[in-house]
Every structure is written in structure tokens, then in C-alpha cells.
Simulated scan of single mutants.
Amino acid sequence: MMFKLTEIDDVLNNLGDHADFATIAKKEADLGVQHFQYDVATGATTYFGENGYLVERRTNGLAVRVAREEDAAAVEQIAKQYIAGQLALTDAVK
């Protein structure tokens, strides 16, 4: 199954900022995404499908690089705030 980045964007936009990972993964799998890789340094995501098919997002979707965070505790706190609905995705990825 061939999927397009626009289809992935539609899924993410329809699910909103606070969808859990399992829901996102299921919806992307329904499109044909078998797995994806996220490069923190560049903010790039590569989505893989069958037969070597792939689609790349060159940034994190916000046209900005993702800052490296050295403090694991700070990353954990941001993740908890995002999951709790206290922080929007656009703010969490800054």
C-alpha cells in the first residue's frame, strides 16, 4: 500500500494534539506505514511502507530544527505535560 505525507498529515490533524501513541500508530498502520524513524538532531521523520517504499518529512512539521536536550529529567517533564494535555505539541517540540 502506498501512502503519502498528506495522508499522514490528515491523520495527525484529525487526531489533534493529545492523541496517544497507540492511536497514532494504528491510524498510520491503516495507511500502510510499517514503521518510522525520527532523527532528533534534524527533526526529520522517515515513514517506511512495504517493498522499501518510504516517505520523508525533512523537519518536525514545524519547519524548525529540534533542539537537543541534554537533561533527561527536563525531557521527561515536557513529555508528562504533553501527555496530560497541559502542553500543545507545537510547544513540546521546541
Score class of each variant (00 low, 15 high):
86 Q>H: 03
61 G>E: 11
52 G>D: 05
71 D>N: 15
1 M>I: 07
62 L>T: 09
43 G>Q: 09
8 I>M: 10
13 N>A: 12
37 Q>A: 08
56 E>Y: 01
60 N>P: 03
85 G>N: 11
27 K>F: 08
65 R>C: 07
92 A>F: 06
89 L>C: 07
17 D>H: 09
29 A>S: 14
69 E>S: 11
9 D>P: 00
67 A>T: 09
15 L>A: 05
48 F>T: 03
65 R>G: 10
40 V>Q: 09
42 T>V: 12
80 K>G: 02
47 Y>S: 06
33 V>N: 02
51 N>D: 15
34 Q>L: 13
58 R>I: 14
55 V>Y: 02
51 N>V: 01
41 A>H: 10
20 D>V: 14
40 V>Y: 05
7 E>M: 10
79 A>M: 09
28 E>N: 10
41 A>S: 13
93 V>Q: 13
17 D>Q: 08
54 L>D: 07
8 I>W: 04
20 D>M: 04
16 G>R: 08
44 A>G: 08
13 N>M: 11
53 Y>A: 03
18 H>R: 04
34 Q>A: 10
70 E>F: 14
30 D>A: 15
75 V>Y: 04
93 V>I: 13
54 L>T: 12
63 A>N: 14
58 R>F: 07
36 F>W: 14
60 N>F: 08
81 Q>T: 00
92 A>H: 02
83 I>T: 08
16 G>M: 08
24 I>F: 11
14 N>V: 00
28 E>W: 07
13 N>K: 14
6 T>N: 08
77 Q>M: 10
88 A>R: 13
24 I>N: 04
5 L>M: 13
18 H>P: 09
38 Y>Q: 10
85 G>D: 09
85 G>I: 14
35 H>P: 00
52 G>E: 06
73 A>V: 03
40 V>K: 11
51 N>E: 07
67 A>D: 15
27 K>D: 12
39 D>H: 15
64 V>M: 12
15 L>N: 04
58 R>A: 11
63 A>T: 08
11 V>M: 07
72 A>R: 13
31 L>V: 02
30 D>R: 05
92 A>K: 02
20 D>T: 06
49 G>W: 07
1 M>D: 06
60 N>R: 07
34 Q>Y: 01
90 T>M: 01
84 A>V: 00
8 I>T: 03
92 A>N: 02
86 Q>M: 00
89 L>Y: 12
14 N>C: 03
39 D>P: 02
8 I>F: 09
59 T>R: 09
30 D>W: 05
30 D>F: 05
85 G>F: 11
78 I>Q: 03
44 A>R: 07
28 E>C: 12
5 L>G: 04
37 Q>E: 15
82 Y>H: 15
66 V>M: 06
63 A>R: 10
43 G>V: 07
40 V>I: 15
58 R>V: 14
49 G>N: 08
89 L>H: 02
